[in-house]
Nucleic acid binder design. Structure first.
Lengths: 240, 240
DNA sequence: ACAAAAGTGTTTCTGGTACACCCATGG
DNA sequence: CCATGGGTGTACCAGAAACACTTTTGT
């Protein structure tokens, strides 16, 4: 790039990347997609998937492309939102790299494939990462922590929880999403009433799903509402 | 910067800027700081203050520096938080410029001075900008809109409203902040109870402030709490 | 005395919590 | 029939909303 833009010697161009915190729920656990880095720096260390933003794409398009390339996931089907920008000049040993972190949520996603500069990609249980200090590359531990808090908090006042479910979902499934993400049991009957009284959260279909044992559950689809009013707060909640 | 980083011809370095949406309350109105651009592009058009991030500063430090340089404001005294990154490749006619938007809130701030590439700086009433389509430079109208929604929503579930007040504040002042930002009257007595029942929102002092007429008000300081639980929701609220 | 602003009290109503209970299905 | 999960009903309580009322100041 030419430098007809800058007017001071203190200014220089930066590399801009996107990093993705992709969450899903598998086997009753909240999982995040990690890669094992196949290039320096931090060779061999776990990291969030991501890569350089290309010349003619928006940041969001870059995130969608990385989602596809590094994780083999079709991003048009899942929820994707920007988390924030991380630009400490010392966050990357190679020089100034500003990264835009994105948060992605999807229903039980396929086993990922390794990408270009990743040895392999895998789902890691969040509970495990939070406890011990699994040393992620760069400042990815901080990004992951912010992403987690964002997810937990967004469940309270938006209908984003449905992003963890397939197109057709039961209220139990939706409740399980809340329980897994918040790490807290919820009262099934109260949860049910809350959701159904929130107009536009879900809309019922005439179909049913049959559990292994027990009464069949009515299937719902996502509704039009995004903001929940009143919100569904994770308070002291139900006895754990 | 060398290009030992990139591995594809599709990748190129970007200029990174910070832009600031600085809000304050003056004469009973929510105001945002705008500059009149003194350089191309968008010469003469109103814009949010901002500028290039320098070599060895974090994004936040860049925002604080621009706050000082472009608005003559000591940023250590006010609330500053990141809003998000805007990186559409067409947002700046000169080329790829990714901007990190910051949101700043402060008590009745001084009349600003023009900065380096601003002809002048001034406080503009938000109500005026929202109505008509005052054509801001770049994508600053979108940034401003998101900043506004962020402020309004953060008042609900954080104690950020105190950032609009001085060190010592009365409950009426605090209520006025909510009323001005939300554009909605609140019941003084209910507001009072809410705030005082939220532990850590404010702590009382023994001092008083005397209005022009009427009973003197007790002065409070900011408390330690940041999250409000339960939140203070702008619902249908009090009759307007 | 009056106006104005601060502050208290009270009633009503909505919505959250906890929990008892009924329903529909597979085994 | 029983176990299991889906779904309904209800009593109780905290907090929001509306509003009447008291207190303390300046003029």
């Amino acid at each position: 790039m030419d430098d007809w833009l800058k007017d001071s010697a203190e200014v220089e161009a930066s590399w801009v990347t996107v990093d993705l915190a992709i969450f899903t729920i598998r086997s009753g656990q909240l999982m995040v997609l990690l890669i094992e880095r196949g290039v320096e720096p931090f060779l061999g260390r776990p990291a969030l998937p991501g890569g350089y933003v290309q010349k003619d794409e928006t940041l969001r398009e870059g995130a969608l492309r990385e989602l596809r390339e590094e994780a083999g996931i079709d991003g048009t089907k899942l929820h994707l939102e920007q988390l924030g920008a991380y630009g400490d000049p010392r966050r990357d040993p190679r020089g100034r790299v500003v990264t835009i972190a994105y948060l992605a949520l999807g229903p039980d996603l396929p086993a990922p494939v390794g990408g270009t500069d990743a040895r392999r990609a895998y789902w890691a249980p969040v509970s495990q990462l939070e406890g011990e200090g699994t040393a992620l590359a760069f400042d990815h531990a901080a990004i992951l922590a912010e992403a987690l808090e964002q997810v937990r908090s967004k469940l309270e006042y938006t209908a984003v929880a449905t992003a963890f479910c397939g197109e057709l979902l039961t209220l139990s499934e939706l409740r399980t999403v809340y329980e897994v993400v918040w790490g807290q049991q919820l009262d099934p009957s109260n949860f049910r009433r809350k959701v159904l009284n929130t107009t536009g959260f879900v809309k019922s279909t005439r179909e049913q799903r049959f559990p292994h044992t027990g009464r069949p559950a009515v299937l719902y689809r996502r509704g039009d509402a995004w903001l929940l009013n009143p919100p569904l707060l994770r308070g002291t909640g139900h006895t754990v």
